[in-house]
Nucleic acid binder design. Sequence first.
DNA 1: CGCAAGATTGATAAAGATCAAGCCGGGTGG
DNA 2: CCACCCGGCTTGATCTTTATCAATCTTGCG
Lengths: 248, 248
Amino acid sequence: MTNPLIRKLEYGANLTDDHRRILERTSQKRRQVPRKEHLIREGERPSCVRLVMKGFACRYKLLPTGERQIMAFLVPGDFCDLHVAILGRMDHSIVTLSPCTIVDIPRETIMDLTDNHPAITRALWWATLVDQAVLREWIVGLGQRPAKTPIAHLLCELTTRLAAVERVTDGAFDLPITQEEFADTLGLSIVHTNHMLMNLRDKDLATVQNKRAIIHDFEQLTRFADFTPDYLHLSDRSSVDEVNRNSA
Amino acid sequence: MTNPLIRKLEYGANLTDDHRRILERTSQKRRQVPRKEHLIREGERPSCVRLVMKGFACRYKLLPTGERQIMAFLVPGDFCDLHVAILGRMDHSIVTLSPCTIVDIPRETIMDLTDNHPAITRALWWATLVDQAVLREWIVGLGQRPAKTPIAHLLCELTTRLAAVERVTDGAFDLPITQEEFADTLGLSIVHTNHMLMNLRDKDLATVQNKRAIIHDFEQLTRFADFTPDYLHLSDRSSVDEVNRNSA
DNA sequence: CGCAAGATTGATAAAGATCAAGCCGGGTGG
DNA sequence: CCACCCGGCTTGATCTTTATCAATCTTGCG
């Protein structure tokens, strides 16, 4: 399995073998992190930038009512905190949703990359802009009522993002997200989230069970969710096509 | 009144007089745009980057149901589409909410800045990361129930952002946003939005009327909305303090 | 003056929350 | 090896929030 960071950045920049070698070198020293472990907490000023190589994590914020709002899912190839290199202070926390393989890249390495490799800088820049586009799309989803659509939309998005880093086979992929975590993402109660997921199952669109998602009909699901992948800016459509083919 | 772009970027970077002069030069050629005019539409690939100098605009997306979701308010000093320089294609539209003064900066000028002025690049980078943090905070707000808090939170945010570019005097500022636009932002009906705004008025926290917002008690309002300005990364707190002083 | 956009008010209906209970599956200790 | 226990999923009943529809009011403006 290829390096998911490199795999992802290929979509946003024309990398040379040289660039690939440099990126490969930065993501050498890996470590394992168990489930439900914090990767970073609100308020911290880390000296490393973390990168997810394997597993799922999420950004979240705790509310004074004790509820938590999840603001992003991090999948292989995603940076946890590239932005703190500039902003300094984390304004939210990140926790693993499954056992993860993490790479820590020293801030100096990032600085070196951005000073000396414009193409890589551009690629990293691109990655954060895609993250931004995803946030905008989530806002669109959360504003929506009724709640059936957003959950289907989220599944479409995850399918597409994971396909881009080759984590989807035969229209199915590991999805270590509990219904409570879905609920915290969509701002719904657990009960209602359950209803919505069963609704998708009843409609033969997708089954989310046993930490695995099976997309029965991606075509139909995208129509149901009014999903268009353009905001993910994965102009190379091959992986998306692959999902279509496999779930057909 | 100073250039709002420069005023804002001062929060994120240490600019020299040289930098200020360069930025001042890029934002020379201004044009007026009436209310409800599109600045850019989904799908376009503009050759200029647009910057708001005066007035309000918003990012939005239209849903197939005909509803619209507003994803960001643009105030003086904000870029409309800095990101298309990298991503290429707009994945949403931008429309003015009031008459606006706009600056068009050719893409080449931006490229020149990013090639030759690392400090300015860093400042622009910082600005987009702050935009990203704002999007995350909106997600937190939209996930929230009941809906009283998010609307108050939005008012706190606008107060703080506008104070940072000196658009707040005596705890009051121009706010050319209709209740329908608030509704499209918060994912609420117009009627309910109206109730929530009146609720804030009844509580003597804030009055939004006649395209103007009056913050009666910023201290109380922030407590009510559980607002902390840290995500705006305006580490220089002077303008925030000013709001407090003036609305006291 | 009169119109049109926007704000307000009231009555009814639907979406979704909350509370409560039962179920299922897999890990653990006796 | 089996009983039990716990986290997560499912189901049902009731209650709150918020939408929808409909009407009236207010205000800026030509």
